[in-house]
Design a protein around this nucleic acid. Structure first.
Lengths: 124, 124
DNA sequence: AGAATAGGTAGGAGATTCCCTACGCGTCAA
DNA sequence: TTGACGCGTAGGGAATCTCCTACCTATTCT
């Protein structure tokens, strides 16, 4: 929904989305939540909370950050809310990563030095 | 140097490294610095600072965060310090990303629903 | 209906982030 | 040697993060 062409602002929205995703991933608890949803499938909040040494309301706030980054969705089931992994924003992270790939591959082949460009104004 | 097998603690070190990398990427200025070093090659601090509406000491602190995450290295050249992209830690991000890949691919093929597992205790 | 369960929100404390203005240190030019 | 340049660090302030303890609503069970 907040996809590639929402219209109007265009790139500004994308940048904000990107920022939310990277910010969401900047916390170890939230990354662990994503791993749990990936490895154990969709779960209600309490089941997730069992894995952490943190009160449930704190986890609720982490889930909110993940929701606003589009990394999880909730589906209400009675009085519970089943959280599910939404991996699509992670594809954008991979896209962001891609232009760097050749740099670490060069390093691994030991060719890095040869291909580095000097700043071309002066050297000591 | 702070690579895969520093010895002793093992996974603890890795987790701390991972955290530093994700934290470093959580800021748009720092991601832009990485992009500049990637697209324009190694540069001194002032050349980088020209791209930002921020005082140079602030950028220096961003560079420190990137250095401590292993994402850049500095090479002294006279009174200047040439910063260079070190993409290796980004390979670890890609490794982290990899187990999620099948999830967004499933979604794209519209098969997501079929493969989702229920929490297997009860449904409404 | 009343009690228990599931989970979100409010408000606050302490830590961290991100920017700033000084200022210090090393290097190059005059 | 003196001054200008390049860059890092110190210290501080505002904003944000991350955790907490209440507290509220919605649903289910008895």
């Amino acid at each position: 929904m907040t996809g590639t062409g929402t219209g109007g602002t265009g790139a500004g929205v994308r940048a904000a989305d990107e920022d939310r995703v990277f910010a969401a991933l900047a916390n170890a608890t939230r990354r662990e939540v994503l791993r749990l949803l990936r490895d154990e499938g969709p779960q209600p909040v309490q089941a997730l909370a069992d894995h952490f040494a943190m009160r449930r309301p704190s986890l609720s706030e982490h889930l909110k950050v993940l929701r606003e980054a589009g990394l999880v969705t909730e589906q209400r089931s009675g009085r519970r809310r089943i959280y599910r992994l939404e991996a699509a924003p992670l594809a954008e992270v991979q896209d962001w990563l891609h232009p760097y790939e050749r740099f670490w591959r060069e390093r691994l082949k030991g060719l890095g030095e040869l291909l580095d460009r000097m700043p071309d104004d002066d050297r000591p």
